[in-house]
């Protein structure tokens, strides 16, 4: 894409948990406007990589630059304010809030009303601001086709819908970079197609750069501009989807396992409980 500063620049990141090396010297760059997929077997370190970018984990070594700025020491909330949003592999909605309120939380860093002006609702402009943002949130709700559940309490929804609400909440942040951790896991074919379409629209219409972890090779091949393969915490390949799939090393490390995994995908994902 653009040859200027990459939106994300990961430099020699290493992350360990006790003896486990989740990431080993991983480096990659993502240009603004790309859809960049990270693939690899379970436990390869994909989620750990996203956690390092969004600030949940701090790498033991290496640094991460966002539009040329070193964000390694920043808290997750500060990274969010810079223009980064994400969804989680295992759902992380605010389960007692309505769908609408969940998505409005995404507007947090864009809203100005606070604990002094909020209580004075009608007199401080808080109402006006809330309603203006509400309008934008309704656009997101329409786009993701969840208007029928906007008043539902998030915790009561089906898995597929919750995934979609999570995406809506991340979109509400108006991020330049959106990180999606297995957005299609546990979905049926139709839901996967919808989700793939949303990702493409977010990228093309909404101008967001996407970094996505996904197991479904068909989707990865179809929509990614570039793909990186992780295995045991190491980057073993990177390039155009077709190039990566043709790589014999990748076939051995990853695709060999993928075949037996495919048939059980739906069942497997529903049982996953670790974050």
């Amino acid at each position: 894409m653009s040859e200027s500063t990459p939106i994300i620049d990961v430099r020699d990141v290493t992350l360990t948990f006790g003896g486990v090396r989740a990431l080993v010297d991983v480096s990659f760059q993502v240009g603004a406007g790309e859809i960049y997929s990270i693939i690899g077997p379970n436990g390869a370190g994909k989620t750990s990589m996203l956690n390092c970018i969004s600030g949940r984990y701090s790498p033991n070594q290496g640094s991460i630059l966002f539009r040329g700025r070193d964000i390694t020491p920043l808290r997750p909330n500060d990274r969010c304010t810079l223009g980064m949003g994400r969804t989680f592999q295992n759902l992380a909605l605010f389960s007692h809030m309505t769908v609408l309120d969940n998505i409005m939380v995404g507007r947090h860093h864009l809203l100005k009303n606070n604990f002094l002006t909020g209580p004075l609702y009608w007199f401080s402009g808080a109402q006006k601001e809330e309603l203006a943002h509400r309008r934008e949130v309704e656009d997101i709700i329409d786009f993701l086709e969840i208007s029928h559940i906007r008043k539902a309490v998030a915790g009561t929804l089906s898995y597929g819908l919750r995934k979609r609400v999570e995406l809506a909440r991340a979109v509400a942040l108006k991020p330049d970079l959106i990180l999606l951790d297995e957005p299609m896991a546990g979905m049926n074919l139709e839901e996967k197609e919808d989700m793939a379409r949303y990702v493409i629209d977010l990228n093309e219409e909404w101008g967001m750069t996407v970094i996505m972890i996904e197991h479904d090779m068909g989707v990865v091949m179809d929509i990614s501009h570039r793909v990186m393969v992780l295995d045991f915490g190491k980057k073993i390949a990177e390039g155009l989807p077709a190039e990566v799939m043709a790589d014999p090393y990748v076939k051995k490390a990853y695709l060999g396992e993928e075949i037996e995994e495919d048939g059980t995908t739906g069942k497997k994902e529903a049982e996953v409980t670790e974050i």
């Binding site: 969010c80 989680f88 992380a92 909605l93 605010f94 995404g106």
Partner: peptide, 11 residues
Amino acid sequence: DHYLSAEIMGI
């Protein structure tokens, strides 16, 4: 409800 996710949402 979910403090880790709240932090990722900019809180």
